[in-house]
Design a binder for these strands. Structure first.
Lengths: 258, 258
DNA sequence: ATACTTATGTCCATATTATGAACACAAACA
DNA sequence: TGTTTGTGTTCATAATATGGACATAAGTAT
């Protein structure tokens, strides 16, 4: 055969994979070929013997991942693929789902709001609503921040089930970020218990001097913990009662997501 | 094994399909299992021997269709799948958005309606509402038609900005499709200007003898030109005033899309 | 209408591989 | 510390995927 089906990576051939790899290649090449995705067109492109191609096309068609136009004979991705794709992309837009709430929280509190998701041993900001005040956060979308010193990190960890949380705690890098960062694991566990008790996380100048943040976990539609939001306030704008107001606003908006 | 991998249809086993079918089953089951999509969870669900499961998981992972959380070991659909899904759903979502309008236009006009999107130097029909009349169009979803001789092509080209339109006009294959097809580029440019002036395109038996079509461009929610619809009428059913009625109905429905 | 070319589709001997019981090791738990 | 559970791999062999050869259908040129 002209084009050997091997995994894309350089890790050497894997048993039981050649037909699967070929099947996946078909799923990828057929939309690219468009109207040329006939048996002849696909065969010319991939160079496979016709029995091999027919067998795979028929299998994918029977499983609903491909459909064939009865008139011209072109293949297209089938409804089974489309269905799977829709469901998976729907779940993929946490940021879209939460964006409105972020905006409203920013409006009502007048402060900067972040949405963070876990990425390795850090939280990464995937959305941010800037405060209209002149003093602003230096953070940015895509920025990775520590879990142990930020309110998004604490809120996220506090919301996890215990075994998953412990896996993170064992691997965290307990570097001090400011003089106030908690770097003792036992003390940090107590801090997370306190976070759960009060219902929100606090970063009391532990990640950045002069900045206090309040964090609440965010869940997927199916209930799984997906990340957290934080509302950040410069200490000079902070006064008693502000924490409760910020948290009440944030909680109401997150609860309205469903 | 507990669950034999056979095609979903009743057509009997197909050679060379068992591993492909298993691979597709994994792609479908993993999002459903969510955080239970660990090796143990998948194995409990499918009942496959572990070497079989590992081989398929590793293959899908190497091809980028699955990714594994390094901490908890759960599998999720990988970026190769997400990429393929996004591209394939892009065209599909225009069809969904426009489908209701297509149906209403078909109902109110009593004629066949197509939705076409650009594909290379052609328009491809991605949706069709059949007329209830006995004389019907031979067109089908997936069919590629010329841009210069059809009302979907003219409507689409007329709506583009000039530089993009000129790119198309320089590369079109000015083949006559019927005796009435415009094959002179300069004359075709005048035709597109006239199309813009009147607000809709006309295929006056230029693509198929005896068939007159009226086309209007369709835009994405962000305003970009995405394709066009056409309403097709056999000449024998055509009378004065019908064009205006058809176009008014079509325009009203498209305007209501937002 | 006929001959030729091209495209579609299948058969089946055999080369190749997918299978899965058995095994090894790691992690969790009592 | 011992047991249980989970992760991961090996490899003899049963099972299957392969692809050259063939059959048939459709399209084209004469």
């Amino acid at each position: 055969m002209k084009e050997k089906a091997v995994p894309s990576s350089a890790q050497g051939p894997v048993q039981g994979s050649a037909a699967v790899v070929k099947g996946l290649q078909l799923l990828q090449i057929i939309p690219e070929l468009g109207e040329a995705a006939t048996v002849k067109g696909i065969q010319q492109h991939l160079g496979w013997p016709r029995p091999t191609l027919y067998r795979l096309l028929n299998t994918l068609e029977r499983e609903g991942f491909l459909e064939r136009n009865p008139l011209g004979g072109e293949y297209v991705l089938g409804r089974q693929f489309i269905h799977l794709a829709r469901r998976s992309l729907r779940a993929g837009s946490l940021q879209e789902r939460v964006r409105g709430a972020l905006r409203r929280i920013g409006c009502e509190t007048g402060e900067t709001v972040h949405l963070g998701v876990p990425s390795g041993m850090h939280m990464t900001y995937i959305d941010k609503v800037e405060s209209a005040e002149t003093v602003r956060m230096a953070s940015y979308i895509g920025m990775a921040v520590p879990m142990h010193s930020t309110s998004v990190g604490k809120a996220y960890l506090a919301a996890l089930d215990e075994s998953e949380r412990e896996r993170y705690l064992e691997q965290l890098d307990w570097e001090p970020v400011t003089a106030r960062t908690i770097v003792d694991a036992a003390r940090f566990r107590r801090e997370l218990r306190e976070t759960r008790r009060r219902g929100y996380a606090i970063d009391d100048e532990e990640n950045e001097a002069g900045i206090i943040c309040f964090g609440l976990a965010v869940t997927e539609v199916d209930g799984r913990v997906a990340g957290a939001i934080s509302v950040s306030v410069p200490r000079y704008r902070f006064d008693d009662g502000k924490a409760e107001r910020i948290v009440a606003i944030a909680r109401a908006e997150l609860d309205s997501l469903g």
